[in-house]
Amino acid sequence: MDETKRKVKKRLRNLQSLPTLPPVVTKLTKLLGDDNTTALQLAKVIEKDQVLTGKVLKMVNSAFYGFPRRISTVSNAIVLLGFNVIRTLVITASIFEMMQSEDLSLWEHSLGVAAAAGLLATKLEIPNPEEVTTAGLLHDLGKVVIRAEFPEYQRQIASLIKEEELYTREAESRVLGLDHGEIGRLLTNQWNLPERLIEPIAYHHEVEKARRFKKETAVVHFADIIIRAWGYGSGGDPWVPPLADKAWKLLRLKEKDLEELMPQLDDRLLDLRFFTMEMQGGGLDQNPPSQS
């Protein structure tokens, strides 16, 4: 297993680019073809894809572009990188050659967690709730890495989950020697992303490990659980992860808060459902995934 872990870590260091979902790229290409498209419109779509969001943030935080560990939202990144750079980045994005239903449901899950995390952050008056939204979107980036880079291990993980009724992260640790949180941490750290994004991504299942951004981490942890319980999208296993005591204490949410939040989340998720359906409809017409 140590051998596997070393192999995974090595592959992470040399990771070139992760694939994006075809419908997102189709939608962006359409926007880029229109001369009237604004940076804000582009940001709105990019923000709905964890891989592109990761790519944009990686670029703006890289040593070369000059703002290491500073920028944590897509809209700020676009202002700094400029339209032409974003354009080139989208055009050169690699796409999933075969889009599977699991990939789509992980995408929906991530969008749902982003929405819930944003609402919670606003409710709890955390400064810059937009950043917590981004952390929510990226929290399962490690799972995308496993699926895209290690399909053979992904199959083993999936069957372990099924046969032994394990949580995804338990199965990941057994097969790879590390879980998607750790993979997310290694990757986003290598990308120079700000600590306020790294901690919630790394520790969304282990809130007690967060040091500087405990509250943000607790928010993403709780948002993950809400969305899993809601049944919006899928994180790869059918079980809702346990709620950490520590997180619940950090958040200090009252029943009344939750009563107010739930209808808002319901609205937000409905909007997202329309968005993902539109994207899938539009994307699949023009870019049919190869069927097996």
Partner: peptide, 17 residues
């Protein structure tokens, strides 16, 4: 210097756009 690079980027991108 980071702030100066920030200004340079904002000016270039806005004027260019």
């Amino acid at each position: 210097d980071e702030i100066l690079r920030l200004v340079a980027r904002l000016l270039s991108n806005s004027v260019q756009f």
